[in-house]
Design a protein around this nucleic acid. Structure first.
Lengths: 224, 224
DNA sequence: GGAATAGTGTCTCTCAGACACTATGAC
DNA sequence: GTCATAGTGTCTGAGAGACACTATTCC
């Protein structure tokens, strides 16, 4: 009786990073049919026995297929229906994740970073997933420090400023940016830590404040 | 081989309306186990043969169990895992919907409206679904005309003002509110249509502008 | 000193909240 | 006229963009 209600459920993840001064997404070559050999988002089936919930599936896929633990992972939308997969009715729970490029394994023949402004044609709903992820990320960037997860844990304000501009794809006034970040106490200075570049004045090093990290965690907790 | 990957997938809907001057959600008495006889959100299994996708499942459930066509329906979050349902590993795609109270069937023994501030204990993840829906609705109310879907298609600005206040649960200055609504061209006046109350000056009748309706539709389309 | 990067001060314009005001109906 | 509801005008303060300015390092 219950068997007739069961569906194939998978998870797909748009992993974003900033690469070559712009927002990019990770694509991997598909090992199996359908679309074997094509580039697509990393994804996999939900396994009742291995995964406590779908978010764990997403973490398992990122660990196995990309070899990372994501700095930030958020559920995006669930796509479903008869036509999205040639194998028939299916459900895909889409996630997006953020990582600094420095913590990603080097791209190779089976794993590439592609600018979100120059995407090839993609199988399933993957183009929609990426578009939705970009929109959510850009939107959240206007009122939170989400792009900080595209940097290592410690960063300077100018690095954060640059990554914001690369995420939203347009310029932000540096002084307005600093005012906003500091007024909302989104970051805390790392005492005694200054970063020297090749030239110029050394910069104060910051990290996300406990308050900010707690907010991101609560925001996800509410839904899990 | 594929059978071991299949999951039970259902849809649950938090249907919001404004009732007794506050935001309320519809609960119906469960006809079957588990939790038979308890009040819970309307929901049902996805049927491959009847539903083109999960949003269609949501519409079918609202039609069958509540007898309505929702003015507004949006996917909220997908809950999954071993522990959320006593029958075992399951997936529930949660939606929220908005309706004017005047278009809902009268409450009875099996169908009640409960203030979101005075919820009883609820089965499954239903408390989380409602909390998530309330948060998304309140959040979207700060920058869109979403609460208009809690009113009939035509309304006066003061009716809209009242429903905003009831949704967010606090007062908004009337003149700021009108400025905002008119500046962003969210509504268009219905020519020659004035609404008389029992007393006082008659009010201009408005409806959501085509631009606004298109925006809501696009926002959903991106994800479907 | 100059070039490069980090960080600040200040002006202006816009917009939201507060709240006093006017307008038009029923009685 | 009063009461009730609809709708407007105006002041003020907070915040964003523009942009000129100072600060600290390497060479």
């Amino acid at each position: 009786m219950e068997a007739e209600f069961k569906q194939v459920v998978s998870v797909d993840i748009a992993l974003f990073t900033v690469h070559k001064a712009g927002l990019a997404v990770l694509l991997i070559r598909r090992e199996r049919d359908p679309y074997q050999g094509c580039f697509a988002l990393p994804g996999g089936f939900v396994h009742e026995d291995k995964d406590a919930d779908a978010t764990q599936t997403a973490r398992r896929v990122l660990a196995n297929k990309v070899g990372i633990v994501a700095q930030y992972l958020e559920q995006l939308y669930t796509f479903s229906g008869q036509v999205r997969d040639p194998r028939g009715w299916s459900v895909s729970i889409a996630y997006y994740a953020l990582m600094p490029e420095s913590l990603l394994p080097a791209p190779d023949d089976n794993r590439i970073l592609i600018s979100v402004d120059a995407l090839p044609e993609l199988p399933f709903d993957h183009a929609k997933i990426i578009a939705g992820g970009v929109e959510r990320l850009r939107n959240k960037s206007t009122y939170s420090t989400l792009p900080a997860f595209l940097l290592p844990k410690q960063f300077t304000l100018n690095e954060l400023h640059r990554i914001y501009q690369q995420v939203i794809g347009s310029d932000i006034d540096n002084s307005s940016f600093r005012r906003r970040i500091e007024a909302q106490e989104m970051v805390t200075p790392v005492e005694g830590s200054m970063k020297k570049g090749r030239q110029g004045r050394p910069a104060q090093v910051y990290q996300l404040s406990d308050t900010t990290l707690r907010q991101f965690r609560n925001c996800l907790m509410l839904m899990e």
